[in-house]
Design a protein around this nucleic acid. Structure first.
Lengths: 148, 148
DNA sequence: CCATTATATATGTATATGCATGTATTTTCG
DNA sequence: CGAAAATACATGCATATACATATATAATGG
């Protein structure tokens, strides 16, 4: 057992690195659908919310509003989502899935599900739950800094 | 205790989300130095290797060679690194830190160290070690898929 | 030694992402 | 009510990232 000094390895850079590795796996396997995991994830979230505004989606995904605007525009160009004005508030745009978007989501879902199950099983459910909880803790810790 | 079905939450999207949150903290605190964590991390790696080629750095950081080329060019424009031809191999470019790069790294290091210690302590050393190991496991799992 | 193959880097193109800022609309408050 | 503040979205600019591909150089095999 080597005694690693974890503090010498950048928490952020390490997380980003693993993030890239995981992203490439998802993207590669989703490739037949033409979706990237970022796009799949956004479609899945819209589907889950049924209809959601740009800024609200940003809050959920912790993405800047401007990022949502652009990413959603890509999905719109592909015909996967519709943008409509909120009748109650002319500033707000409401995002919904189109029929084509729902179909694309359904097409990609089984592939996504397979990767999920495979990777979680390989990590081991127990370990993955701990991992998941620590990720959640990290987010909370950082958000608590912001409130200072 | 609510029984969450972890398989319904995208491993990749979740990891990317936390990655963003952590990155924003590091970037915010590093801002006085003008470095982003990606840049700091790259400088620190070059420093650690003393001198390294573009593709070798890509292997270490698991970044595409083209990404290294571009990111290094930014660091070069800022005068933090030098690129020289490898006398043994005219294809290869050798990256080294300039004096200015070393100074910048030294300027940023204490800030980086503070974030590191703070965040790892807040997570808790024990938990963080488990977390770190699981991240490593995930990388290995995914790399094992690629060999198939 | 030369042709083929492999390797190292660069470039074109595209998505993802954030910050600063601009514009339009709504809300608040004197 | 009307001006100021807040909110929602869009745009300009910049970095990070990957894939496909081009270019230059080295290595290899006949």
């Amino acid at each position: 057992m080597k005694n690693i000094d974890y503090t010498h390895i950048c928490v952020c850079a390490n997380l980003r690195k693993k993030s890239r590795v995981v992203t490439q796996l998802y993207d590669k396997l989703l490739q037949p659908t033409g979706l990237k995991i970022t796009q799949y994830s956004m479609l899945a979230n819209i589907d889950h919310q049924q209809s959601v505004s740009i800024s609200r989606l940003g809050e959920i995904l912790l993405l800047d509003q401007t990022t949502i605007t652009r990413n959603i525009n890509l999905l719109k160009q592909n015909g996967y989502v519709d943008l409509t004005r909120d009748p109650q508030d002319a500033r707000t745009k409401v995002i919904t899935l189109t029929k084509k978007g729902i179909e694309k989501l359904n097409e990609a879902a089984p592939i996504w599900q397979d990767i999920q199950e495979r990777i979680i099983n390989d990590i081991g459910i127990e370990k993955y739950e701990d991992f998941y909880e620590t990720l959640k803790t990290i987010q909370k810790i950082i958000q608590s800094y912001d409130e200072e």
